[in-house]
Amino acid sequence: MAKRRRLETPSSEDLTKIDAEFRRETPSRPAAPIAQVAADAAALAPTLDPATRAEAARDKTDAERMRAAEAEGLLIREVPLEEIDADAMVRDRMALSEEDLLELRLSIAEHGLRLPIEVFELSEPSEGRRYGLLSGYRRLMAYRYLDQLNKSDRYARIKALVRPRQTIDVAYTAMVEENEIRASLSHYERGRIAVIAANQGAFTNVEAAVEKLFSSASKAKRSKVRSFALVFEELGDMLAFPEALTERRGLQLATALRGGAEQRFRIVLEEGKPTSPEEEWTLLELVVTEADEMPRKPKRMGRPKMSVPPAGWHGRDMLQTSTGVTIRRETDGRGYLLRLEGKTLTSDAMETIMLQIRNLLEADGKG
């Protein structure tokens, strides 16, 4: 039988030797740089003079403000042109005046860009494009033109406010508001962007798009936007010069379209093939005139008037008064009901009737 070995508790001297040997064989792990910096700063803090401590506090406050401003999109950055997708959103403005663009290019070349553009981070960047253009389309186009002319990198980057990521309806609203303030959109452009925004899912329908995009406009102006939205929906693919439509002409088209003239418009435009705004309107006016001359359905002027029966009793349960009030007697499982109808009935009249009924019933009770 094997003899059991007796275990003995190590002495304090043995434990010290074991610990020393363990430390020699285990490499020490250096502290993280940021942790070391924080530790050094904490160690030095009590020894700093008041002025230095105040400056450090200001630096900390400034850093916090900087981070907050960046998160809210209030900091101006210089963004490379190739990282901006100008077509991330369908633009509300259809045509750019070459004269205005030339003036803008000359101004930027001489004085620089006075106002930054606005961009937002794309949720899915592609082909090196990290940002979508929110506002400043003309400024971006002018910068790209100047960049192509100059071999230097002077116009390779543009000043921009990088707005936080936002939903598409908010982005469309911001774009429309910016253009309305700087250069008012045409009636057709307003209707067009409302339809496009709705079709892209930014709004549930065109009506909601108009209400949101032009919320600050008057009720009459929103009504006009809806009319031009109808013109774009029905004839947008056929019109060659839609931006030339005046308010009056656009409303005439919308009226004819509501009357069912869409097919006639399309036939006339297809056969006529206009080459100028006036030629196009001449063709459209033919259909508008035809629609105006068509017999109109008589308008329904509310509910038909009900004939009032003559005063007196009509059966046992209906009484017609000379003032036009009808009193009907009805019953249910709990008793009798009196139903009173008539334009002359008011709250005061009903209160008087209730008092008379009370007096009548109380008098009957005494008898």
Rank of each mutant, 00 (worst) to 15 (best):
R93D: 03
R24T: 13
Q356M: 06
A311M: 14
A220M: 09
I196C: 11
A197H: 08
R138T: 15
I76P: 00
E262R: 13
A32L: 13
A45H: 05
L104A: 10
Y137T: 02
L360T: 06
S126Y: 06
A209T: 09
A174P: 00
A311T: 15
A86K: 03
S107K: 02
A171K: 12
M141G: 04
Y188N: 07
E247C: 00
S184A: 06
K60N: 05
K305Q: 08
D19F: 13
A229R: 05
E247Q: 08
A256T: 07
A202F: 00
T352L: 14
N150A: 09
E280H: 07
K273P: 03
R264C: 14
M294Q: 01
L286S: 10
R328H: 04
E247W: 00
L269R: 11
R222D: 07
E121F: 02
G365M: 04
A183M: 03
R53N: 11
Y131N: 11
A32P: 05
Y143G: 03
S135L: 00
A198G: 06
T167A: 14
P46N: 01
G250D: 02
A254D: 08
S28P: 13
L345K: 04
E55Q: 09
S223G: 01
D87S: 11
Y145M: 02
T204K: 15
R91I: 00
E270T: 15
S186M: 12
T26F: 10
E78V: 02
L15D: 00
N205G: 10
R58N: 12
S152M: 05
K273L: 03
D237P: 04
L251T: 08
D19H: 04
E21M: 15
I108F: 02
G315S: 11
H187I: 00
V288L: 14
T255V: 12
K224P: 00
D292K: 14
V287K: 06
L75V: 15
L7P: 04
T61G: 11
Y143W: 08
R67W: 10
P33M: 11
A174Y: 04
D49F: 06
S11P: 08
F265K: 03
R163H: 04
R303I: 08
H111K: 15
T26D: 03
I357R: 02
K299A: 11
E98H: 01
E341F: 10
T47E: 09
M301R: 13
E280S: 08
A71E: 12
E293D: 13
S215G: 13
A240C: 02
D332N: 15
A41S: 13
T323N: 10
S123K: 12
